[in-house]
Design a protein around this nucleic acid. Structure first.
Lengths: 366, 366
DNA sequence: CTGAAAGCGCTTACAG
DNA sequence: CTGAAAGCGCTTACAG
């Protein structure tokens, strides 16, 4: 069904150029360009009122759209921003990117995004690809906390900012992850939990590192040490959470006091924890409390709604783009940390008594 | 920490042009262009062996990278593909896009993607934006089944293909959603379910329409009619699924036989169903069976692993891009439907006896 | 085997 | 108020 369609042509892809307009109007292309290019208030300086009107009328009629390649070539600005994320299929990054895109559209910028899967070689290759496209700036959502690679990017004078994860002294917009970890800890402490563990995410991501640190420090201030063996790295997805939780919940047979609460630095990992708990016959919210992070839309809709720390994902993206724009204009900008918020739901409850876990040897009171 | 860094400059963003190379080598830019542009096997025709070597050596040394804006302007090809999706924060679309991107990279194409939220005005505006960028082709993941808007795009001679959803006679790569609906129905029939309902997704999306049709037709063939009142449209997320399930599970108080199984055309909607079931004290897998669609990674990791119909999301994206490439080369291409697969897990079980549902009036045997 | 020319579509001082 | 020129960086027939 190739269509013969009387609808008005939607503009774009048209062969109408400045030359087309100029010729039809008996003007020079430079005049047309000046008029079409000037902001509305300056158009009077660009040409006579009558000329301006004629030009604009014809441009509208023919659906003139400037060729961005020609403009970019000439002006050396592409109005393009390149965005790197570990994976768009992670809803956290996808939501951050939606914020970036929204804000970019408001600034007349186009974005393009690419997945690096947190693989350094891919990060390098995609950065090259993005730079080859002559973007005006970049946003990295996949920073390794050491920042070595980003140091090299900075050396090339490409303006960029980080979102979601911080690294070295590079400008970043993150959630205040440390504060978020504290919120989770304070909540569990207030419920009487003393024997807890952390599913900490990937070791190279500041998100997991800072959330874990805030959590552990808060317990330490309450006089409770979270043993190293109870902090497990993991992938940032449900399977990663389940694997880590299986691990933590079975090694506790070794004699420690049983774990009564688990903090997962990511909602999806927390969902994996829920599965591991169920497999062991632990009732979530009573036998075992679980706290996640991010408050993804799923959290509130789970059969047992998930207690979690909300991070302003979309806002992080919006703000990251805004800082980038300021940076591209040469302004100095500083890193920002957006406030998290605790969302108490059904996966957390009072710490159970000191009964030992599911059939293991009795844990000695410490 | 602005870095003074002895690392070798990563290529890109460099001011090195063909002219730079030509001047340093005492050659004409056209010679340099020819050599750098020709495929390796044809370079002998482009210049002498020695010249070729000198050019390539210097290009490598200086990190020459062609300016894509100049190339696009001159060749009228941008090597850019524009992709429209409802929302990247839907893991289904994000995964399809990952497939598109992967395949595009293999074809030397860059993609850029934008969210339209299934809002027609936004679809139009974003299409314009993408076309203004002079893409060589487009992929739509947000088609309305009627295809009216796409007819107008087709009239402009932009090569495009659809993924995920079909529309009109436009070329698309979809899951065989009708077959997928049949798989879900056959599974439930084999378990003895006779009183079922469907959470059908948005009315404009072929995915939900076809999955529902396959399901309903299969029940009809078994002599069982699924009443219209038991087919509910919904958003494609957990909240949408919960709302629709709440609705279905409470109206059944009206006197019908109680629903023993629910088919949600999307895993996230199915998760919402799980929540609604729990709220009513229904045991999923015994009191109520639930089947989802897509087999997103979360499905297998849920506390009660979800029975669902797997759709080849990434593959759909890859294949969509491949068809687009063929289309851009002027080859005729046909729509494709990729095979779904049933994944039986724990949310489905034998139909319970004819006891009435949670406290409602007894349902008359039909 | 290599060079010279033309031109893709735009913008931007500079003249007048 | 408008025009003419130059040039952004590339590619592609065409000559020789």
């Amino acid at each position: 069904m190739e269509i013969d369609n009387p609808a008005p042509p939607i503009a774009g892809q048209s062969p109408v150029t400045l030359r087309t307009l100029a010729d039809r109007l008996g003007l020079h292309v430079s005049t047309v360009s000046r008029v079409l290019h000037a902001p509305p208030d300056e158009q009077l300086r660009a040409a006579s009122k009558a000329t301006v009107q004629r030009i604009r009328a014809l441009a509208d009629e023919l659906g003139y759209r400037p060729n961005p390649h020609a403009t970019s070539l000439r002006t050396r600005r592409s109005n393009l921003v390149g965005v790197l994320v570990p994976r768009l299929s992670d809803i956290v990054l996808a939501t951050i990117y939606e914020g970036i895109e929204e804000s970019a559209a408001e600034h007349g910028l186009s974005t393009f995004v690419t997945n690096t899967r947190d693989v350094p070689d891919v990060q390098r290759a995609r950065t090259e690809m993005v730079l080859d496209r002559r973007v005006d700036g970049m946003i990295f959502g996949d920073a390794y906390v050491d920042g070595a690679f980003l140091d090299r990017v900075a050396a090339r004078n490409v303006p960029f900012v980080l979102v979601s994860r911080r690294a070295g002294a590079h400008v970043s917009v993150t959630c205040d992850d440390y504060a978020g970890g504290r919120l989770a800890a304070e909540h569990l402490l207030s419920l009487g939990h003393r024997s807890v563990a952390v599913i900490a995410g990937e070791p190279y991501a500041s998100t997991g590192i800072d959330r874990t640190a805030g959590f552990v420090d808060t317990f330490a201030e309450a006089g409770i040490e979270v043993p190293t063996g109870r902090i497990r790295h993991s992938r940032f997805d449900a399977r990663g959470g389940r694997v880590a939780a299986d691990d933590l919940l079975s090694t506790e047979l070794g004699g420690d006091r049983p774990i009564t609460a688990l903090f997962a630095v990511n909602d999806f990992a927390a969902i994996g924890v829920l599965g591991a708990a169920r497999d062991r016959g632990l009732a979530v919210g009573s036998d075992l409390s679980v706290v996640g992070f991010n408050d993804t839309p799923l959290a509130a809709e789970l059969p047992i709604p998930l207690t979690t720390v909300r991070s302003p994902m979309r806002q992080m993206g919006r703000r990251g783009l805004e800082l980038l724009v300021r940076r591209m204009q040469g302004e100095p900008v500083e890193s920002e940390r957006l406030a998290p918020a605790l969302m108490v739901r059904a996966t957390t409850g009072g710490a159970p008594g000191r009964k030992p876990g599911n059939g293991g040897p009795k844990a000695p009171a410490r």
